[in-house]
């Protein structure tokens, strides 16, 4: 099955420093949830950043619908339909909730259309309507994550990539976050998820990708990754489903 997004032999790193990714591969299938796991320093976040053009690609390629994304800036990748929600939500703390949503649709030229889409988002997430005039920096962690996730939906992207969406959140809030992700997947949005809580991430995913030292060790259905005793021992704290 041909991937919507194909990452092949990717080499990337920060500035003039050593390469963090050393031949990573990834095949993203349309409409599915993909969870990338691996130990600290494996290159998970670097992979997402390189895909959207936040880091230059030194070798290898990233192809979206058959076209190379090499050399594109993040705003250009976004216009193709790929959206990244980085760690710590990346909100604009001094802007209101509504203004943050407007920034989510920054690349939509039709202002009326943008407002209509924001209204639609507020209908789906009533908490955002209740808090529309509140500064984003004063929201709770869970509300901030909801805003960050909902904001991506304004553009109706084809792929949304989340970097550690559960970071620093209470277990109940984490469940809500994964609930929103499920909602997005049900709407046909393809999801790539980097998650430290590998067990939780894989349980909500269709496919699992294991990275180590910048290389892809395994790409398989998520339940297979969960059952793999080696992976369970190495990355899931010995809690494989086998």
């Amino acid at each position: 099955m041909s991937g919507l997004l194909e990452v092949t032999d990717l080499v990337a790193g920060y500035g003039n420093g050593p390469a963090i990714l050393n031949g990573a591969r990834l095949s993203v299938r349309p409409g599915e949830v993909h969870c990338v796991i691996g130990p600290n320093g494996a290159g998970k976040s670097t992979l997402l950043k390189a895909i959207v053009g936040m880091l230059p690609i030194r070798a290898g390629d990233v192809r979206f619908k058959g076209e190379s994304l090499k050399g594109l800036r993040p705003d250009q990748a976004l216009r193709r339909g790929i959206c990244l929600v980085p760690q710590e939500r990346a909100l604009f703390p001094a802007m209101t909730v509504r203004e943050n949503l407007r920034m989510g649709g920054y690349s939509i030229p039709d202002k009326a259309e943008l407002e209509r889409r924001i209204d639609g988002i507020e209908e789906r997430f009533p908490i955002l309507r209740e808090r529309r005039g509140q500064r984003a920096g004063t929201l709770s962690g869970g509300q901030q994550q909801t805003l960050a996730m909902a904001r991506t939906m304004i553009l109706k992207p084809e792929i949304v990539m989340f970097d550690e969406p559960s970071l620093g959140l209470a277990p109940k809030v984490v469940a809500e976050v994964f609930g929103i992700m499920k909602l997005m997947a049900a709407e046909g949005i393809t999801i790539v998820l980097v998650e430290q809580n590998a067990l939780m991430g894989l349980k909500h995913a269709d496919r699992g990708i294991v990275l180590d030292l910048g290389k892809t060790l395994l790409e398989a259905p998520a339940d297979e990754v969960l059952r793999d005793p080696r992976i369970g021992e190495l990355y899931l704290g010995g809690r494989s489903e086998a």
Binding site: M54, P74, V85, L91, F92, P93, M95, E99, M103, S107
Partner: peptide, 22 residues
Amino acid sequence: GYPIRATTQNREAAELLGVNVN
């Protein structure tokens, strides 16, 4: 003005939302 304010508050987020920060 919006993207200028956004870039001031969070340059990386602005870039990821389609702002040409350059």
